[in-house]
Design a protein around this nucleic acid. Structure first.
Length: 508
RNA sequence: GUCCCCAUCGUCUAGUCAGGUCCAGGACACCGGCCUUUCACGCCGGCAACACCGGUUCAAAUCCGGUUGGGGACGCCA
């Protein structure tokens, strides 16, 4: 395996290449998705490429299911990549070649200290509240000593030999600015396990060199790893990429969000299943730690690509404002608000396409909605969408517009019907007036309803909201005259005539 | 414990690099009003923050030092 590609300088240094390297140990969560989004935006903005690399070196925890979940999540979001997915385990020989090179150039050494021994020392240091650092016991072993230990069959790991200098490792982070770390504060870290498997720090760097990554955009939790990785780049004689660390997303208790402690709420698929528009989720996520600098918060894809830059990335961690068990907000209120915003402003035909499956699942899909009843369908969706928060609301809260069996809200029943028992006879009267209308327009139904109200000496609202309850089962909704029009004369008249069923049933 | 990073309304943030135009702007949430047959949308208004202490300066959210608070990293995990 030739190793000179480590030193090969990029000939097309202007081209931006970024990567998203998830480890397949769970679903795609919103923190990871946000990192992917930032990478994707940056690549798009600079006409660069994005590589998807599955970091599956931890065979024990990596699963096929998880890989698929991550792929599905990215696909749903519309985060596309130009290369990959690559799998880190496919490049083990390159990782090992790099380790050999480091060994050969005296940038690394074999360490025979046992895991048990080291763990004991670490524990002792922890109990004494002291600082633990590898004591470099094997750093200066003579070639003869190493040979002897190897011959004796002693297992060893390969450690990186951190330069013995008084200086600091420094780099210019695109978000955090200048970061410095003293060499003495970096211990000789392990790059190859005793079973011969290379470790993340090494693999990650080798892969980034091979893939000619120009910009490493990742979470702030990678910030502390960066000086060590830079050391590897230098030892391998490779060009160091630009680093840009993104602030983390924490929960209300300022703890890092994770599957373990937060469950489904932080999973991308949760949002898909709960009627979120992928772009709305992206729009929300991108705002968690970044701002355009002006007052804009809603962006089209083109606008966002144009507006995005590291300048606008905040340095402090942001909080995912989710309260468990909140009856009103099942996730961050701002996320819901943004989703609702798109729901009421996007082309209605797009919504129609997105809710088809949901309607089918609820048993209220009608194929005619795509042919002869398409106009009616779109008009109805448009009428009801302003108060909806998710795509699911159309089939759930909007059921009465598409089906004759729909639930009746208890509060609507009490307030709009039970309080005025006379409606039991008034609504059939209204039905008769409506039935007699030659043209069932909103103007005509309004005139008829108001006229009847006047004749009965009741407020129009009494009649109208009584009708609302009987016709939609709900306390609130669009203008009833538009509802009448959309639901249609026949169904309106029928539902009004059946008002008796809400007053103890059969005695009509 | 060691090292690194961070600190503006409840939350997301603008303003900090180039100190005065900021008794701090926007958004979400919340409260009130208008519209109205209801709820929502929309519009109008309100509540609400520069963590603390010291320094520099005519002037500090902005610069410097410290304190406190928070986060991250310190694995033969990624």
């Amino acid at each position: 395996m030739p190793v000179d590609f480590f030193t090969k300088e990029s000939t097309m240094s202007e081209e931006v290449i970024v990567r998203f390297p998830p480890s397949p140990t769970g679903y795609l969560h919103i923190g990871g998705a946000r990192t992917a989004i930032y990478n994707w935006l940056f690549a798009k903005k600079h006409g660069g490429k994005m590589i998807l690399r599955i970091e599956d070196t931890d065979a024990e925890r990596s699963t096929e299911e998880s890989i698929q979940g991550i792929l599905d999540g990215l696909a749903w979001l519309g985060i596309t990549f130009d290369q990959g997915p690559y799998f880190q385990t496919e490049f083990t020989s390159q990782h090992m070649a790099a380790a050999e090179k480091l060994l050969a150039t005296n940038h690394a050494y074999k360490c025979f200290c046992t895991k048990e021994d080291l763990e004991a020392k670490r524990e002792t240091a922890a109990t004494d509240k002291g600082d633990y650092k590898y004591n470099q016991a094997c750093r200066n072993l003579s070639p003869e000593q190493v040979a002897a230990k190897e011959k004796a069959g002693l297992p060893y790991v390969i450690r990186f030999k951190v330069p013995d200098q008084q200086d600091t490792v420094r780099f210019e982070d695109k978000v955090y600015g200048r970061i410095e770390r003293a060499y003495v504060d970096i211990e000789d870290f392990v790059i190859v396990r005793s079973n011969g498997k290379p470790l993340y720090l090494l693999c990650n760097v080798v892969d980034d060199i091979r893939d000619r990554i120009t910009h490493v955009i990742r979470g702030q939790d990678g910030l502390a790893n960066t000086p060590r990785q830079i050391l590897i780049y230098e030892a391998l004689g490779a060009k160091i990429p630009v680093f840009a660390h993104m602030p983390l997303t924490l929960d209300l208790n300022k703890a890092k969000i994770s599957k373990r402690s937060h469950g489904e709420i932080v999973a991308v698929h949760f949002y898909r299943e709960h009627g979120f528009l992928p772009w709305a989720l992206i729009n929300f996520l991108v705002l968690l730690g970044w701002s355009s600098g002006d007052d804009r918060e809603i962006f089209s894809q083109e606008e966002l690509i144009q507006a995005f830059s590291f300048e606008g990335v905040n340095r402090s961690n942001s909080i995912f404002n989710y309260r468990k068990g909140d009856p009103k907000f099942f996730t961050d209120p701002k996320a819901i608000n943004i989703n609702a915003h798109y729901l009421r402003s996007m082309p209605i035909a797009e919504i129609a396409a997105l809710i088809k499956d949901d309607f089918a699942a609820e048993g209220i899909w009608n194929p005619l909605y795509e042919s002869t009843q398409r106009e009616w369908f779109l008009q109805t969706l448009d009428l009801i969408r302003s108060r909806f928060h998710t795509l699911q609301d159309f089939a759930r809260q909007g059921r009465a517009y598409f089906a004759d069996d729909f639930p009746i809200e208890e509060r609507a029943l009490e307030k709009n019907l039970n309080k005025t028992p006379e409606l039991k006879s008034w609504l059939p009267l209204l039905a008769a007036r409506f039935a007699a209308l030659p043209d069932f327009s909103r103007e005509n139904t309004e005139t008829a309803a108001r006229q009847l109200a006047e004749e009965l000496s009741v407020k129009p609202g009494t009649l109208i909201n009584g009708a609302r309850t009987v016709i939609t089962g709900q306390l609130a909704g669009p203008s009833m005259f538009e509802v009448f029009e959309v639901i249609g004369k026949e169904r309106v008249v029928t539902r009004l005539e059946q008002v008796g069923r809400f007053f103890g049933g059969a005695d009509l």
